[in-house]
C-alpha cells in the first residue's frame, strides 16, 4: 500500500533490549547495537528469518554452508542456549561476551571446559580428547601416526589429570589452564572492542555514555 513509516523498526525474533544485554555482559550499549548489525547480516545470509541457523554459522566461519566441523558444532551448541537449533540475538550477545577482552579469565576457562566436555559428563575424558585431536588433524590435513596421537594425548593427560583417574574434572582444568594460558588464546576476540567501528549502528540514543 506504500504507507510504511521509515521509523517503524522491525526487530528479529528473539530480539532483546541492548540496555539489558549490556547490563548482563561485558559489552557497552553501542557495542550491543553494533553486534545487532552483525547478527542481522549473519541471520539473513541464507535462511532469511533473523535467526542464525547452523548452515549460516558454518557459512560465516568457512564460507561454506555445508562444512562439517566438530568444533564449530560445539560452539554452535553452546551458543544455542535454548537448544532449539538456532541462535537468537540475546544468545549471540551473551555467548560472544565470553570472548570479550574484558571478560574475566574464569568465565573463559569455564566456557572452554564445557566446549571440550563433548558428552556433557562434567569432565573431559581421554576418548574425548583423542577425538578432538583427530578432528583437528583431519581438518588441518595433518597426518600423524596412531602412536604419535596417543603420545600427545597421554602427555597432555599426564599434565592435566592430576589425580590420575582418567578424566579431567573442572578443578583440574582450571589448574591446567593456569599453568598453560596459551590454551585460552582463542577465547579472546580483540575484534569485539572495535565492533562499533566495523558495524556502525545508525540508531541514535539519548544516553550514549558508555562508561566502563
Amino acid at each position: 500500500m506504500g504507507c510504511f513509516s521509515s521509523k517503524q523498526i522491525k526487530h528479529t525474533p528473539g530480539y532483546e533490549d541492548p540496555v539489558l544485554l549490556a547490563s548482563e555482559t561485558s559489552f557497552t550499549v553501542s557495542e550491543v547495537e553494533a553486534l545487532y548489525e552483525l547478527f542481522k547480516k549473519l541471520s539473513f545470509s541464507i535462511i532469511k528469518d533473523g535467526l542464525i541457523h547452523k548452515e549460516e554459522f558454518q557459512f560465516a566461519l568457512f564460507r561454506n554452508s555445508n562444512k562439517k566441523n566438530l568444533f564449530a558444532d560445539r560452539i554452535f551448541d553452546l551458543f544455542d542456549v535454548k537448544r532449539n537449533g538456532v541462535i537468537e540475538f540475546g544468545e549471540f550477545v551473551r555467548s560472544l561476551s565470553v570472548f570479550h577482552p574484558k571478560t574475566p579469565e574464569s568465565e573463559k576457562t569455564a566456557f572452554a571446559f564445557r566446549l571440550y566436555d563433548l558428552r556433557h559428563t562434567g569432565s573431559i575424558e581421554r576418548v574425548e580428547l583423542k577425538e578432538m585431536v583427530l578432528a583437528l588433524l583431519s581438518e588441518s590435513d595433518l597426518h600423524l601416526s596412531e602412536d604419535i596421537v596417543e603420545a600427545i594425548v597421554d602427555n597432555t593427560f599426564k599434565q592435566a589429570d592430576s589425580n590420575g583417574d582418567g578424566k579431567i574434572d573442572e578443578e583440574e582444568w582450571k589448574d591446567f589452564v593456569k599453568r598453560n594460558p596459551a590454551i585460552l588464546k582463542n577465547m579472546t576476540l580483540p575484534y569485539l572492542v572495535d565492533i562499533t567501528m566495523s558495524f556502525p549502528s545508525f540508531v541514535v540514543h539519548s544516553d550514549t555514555s558508555d562508561a566502563d
Partner: peptide, 25 residues
C-alpha cells in the same frame, strides 16, 4: 618433538574455534 605438544593447544588452533572470521565483511 610432537609428543611434547599440548593437545589442547593444538585443538585451539581449529578453524571452527576461530570466531574472528564472523567479523569479516
Amino acid at each position: 618433538r610432537p609428543s611434547l605438544m599440548n593437545a589442547f593447544e593444538l585443538i585451539s588452533t581449529s578453524q571452527g574455534l576461530n570466531l574472528s572470521t564472523l567479523f569479516e565483511k
